[in-house]
Design a protein around this nucleic acid. Structure first.
Length: 420
DNA sequence: TCTGGGGTCCTAGGACCC
DNA sequence: TCTGGGGTCCTAGGACCC
């Protein structure tokens, strides 16, 4: 049996923990640049504020209902997430961290216990230790655990923990009550295709012949269908597969029209990407840079391009990546457009021993030492304490906007919560 | 005026090989 | 008039997830 623990309204809950005065108010958290709504408390959901909705579209609702608006604070959410996971690890030896607010685990080690009572114990402990309410779904496959989790959240009788039923009749009832587009792995496009062939619920998916699903869809959808009928196709991945690519990108706070600013932004993304790669001990064999205008401004000329180059030998050295990124970016740059976004992608990532090259003029030992010192200083004194000048000193003309970010209460000494 | 960021997997089609 | 069969590798694009 599998379980999925999912934090309720995670980002909104994190904000509330440190601002108890918001506990009864509707509260939303915005994406980077304060653009879209990416998390809502129950009260905000009840007001009809949609997930992913641009915030300017719901200004009226926000004003009329005194909705509390927060910029996103990932330093805080990531640290709270870590605390939730370590609380769960007190009960179960291995978990799969599926996302910042979801954890899968295998219940085989505790098969003798009453699984619901066991999960309720986890639930109450996480709440006590972190302040975060979690809902837990239990099922014979990950897809069914996910489905059970949805019931745990919606059904007030479930009390935040729900086990997918064993009896055929109950099984059928729960599956029939699950609309096609709420199944994990079935998004908008597949849901549309299912509806076209007259399939609207999870129960109807289970009734289909696998061969028919395979021919109408693909193997991913077929696996989902099998999981719905109780045949596991996915295991718990407690050792996450090593990453294959890494992206750092941001929309600009204001439109960028000068190469000077664009080059700073590209440099800054390249620096962050290389830093992240080093922190994981990888090297990249390919580098790509992209720049874009604002796709929502149909009235403005659009320009959306990317370029890439091989990194030989594969590297994680900032100056090397920086130099290549600047060259690619400069090749893409065209005057006369208003740019909205830029980013850097590292791919063909490998770990451990890598093939060297005969004709390199770089002193790799020296590079490694330099990067180590730079990373050490930035970890100790705060990120960006030491950085190449290419990313600029005054970044106001392109850096993102965050009107109301809460302090990084749990990860910065100078932002600790104060009591009086 | 204002619209996020970061990933994975699968498939089809083209280039190329013998 | 009539022009094969069987592979691999790479890339772009589409789907999904949070």
């Amino acid at each position: 049996m599998y379980a999925l623990a999912d934090c309720n309204n995670f980002y909104a809950t994190c904000e509330r923990i440190f601002h108890p005065q918001f506990s009864s108010k509707p509260i939303i958290v915005l994406s980077n640049n304060d653009g879209c709504v990416i998390a809502r408390s129950q009260e905000a959901k009840d007001l009809g504020i949609r997930m992913g909705q641009p915030v300017f579209q719901c200004r009226d609702v926000i004003r009329k209902n005194n909705v509390v608006v927060c910029s996103s604070n990932y330093a805080l959410y990531e640290d709270m997430s870590r605390r939730v996971v370590s609380s769960i690890l007190h009960f179960i030896p291995e978990v799969e961290i599926y996302s910042i607010d979801e954890v899968f685990f295998d219940l085989t080690p505790v098969a003798d216990c009453d699984l619901e009572i066991f999960c309720r114990k986890i639930q109450s402990t996480v709440l006590k230790w972190t302040g975060i309410p979690v809902s837990i779904g239990i099922g014979p496959t990950k897809t069914l655990a996910k489905l059970a989790n949805r019931v745990a959240k919606k059904d007030s009788l479930a009390g935040s923990v729900y086990r997918f039923p064993v009896r055929d009749l109950d099984r059928r009832r729960v599956l029939a009550a699950t609309p096609i587009d709420e199944i994990w792995g079935i998004g908008r496009q597949w849901a549309k295709r299912f509806k076209q062939v007259g399939v609207d619920t999870a129960w109807e998916v289970v009734q289909m012949r696998t061969a028919d699903i395979r021919s109408h869809f693909n193997v991913t959808v077929m696996r989902t269908a099998m999981e719905l009928s109780g045949i596991p196709c996915e295991n718990i991945e407690s050792n996450p597969a090593q990453r294959r690519s890494l992206v750092r990108s941001r929309s600009f706070g204001r439109m960028v029209t000068r190469w000077e600013h664009m080059s700073q932004a590209i440099a800054s993304h390249a620096i962050r990407a290389a830093e992240k790669l080093r922190s994981e001990g990888g090297v990249a064999g390919r580098l790509a840079v992209f720049i874009q205008t604002n796709r929502f401004r149909k009235d403005l000329p659009q320009y959306c391009v990317s370029g890439s180059c091989e990194l030989l030998p594969p590297t994680n050295t900032t100056p090397v990546i920086l130099k290549e990124a600047a060259a690619i970016g400069h090749g893409l740059w065209k005057e006369g457009f208003q740019y909205k976004k830029a980013g850097v992608m590292l791919s063909e990532i490998s770990f451990g021993e890598t093939q060297s090259t005969l004709f390199s003029d770089r002193d790799h030992e020296h590079d490694a030492k330099l990067m180590q010192v730079m990373d050490l200083i930035n970890v100790k004194m705060g990120s960006d304490t030491l950085h190449p000048a290419a990313s600029g000193v005054d970044r106001r003309s392109w850096s993102m906007q965050q009107g109301s970010r809460s302090p990084r209460y749990t990860t910065r000494w100078d932002e600790l919560p104060k009591t009086s």
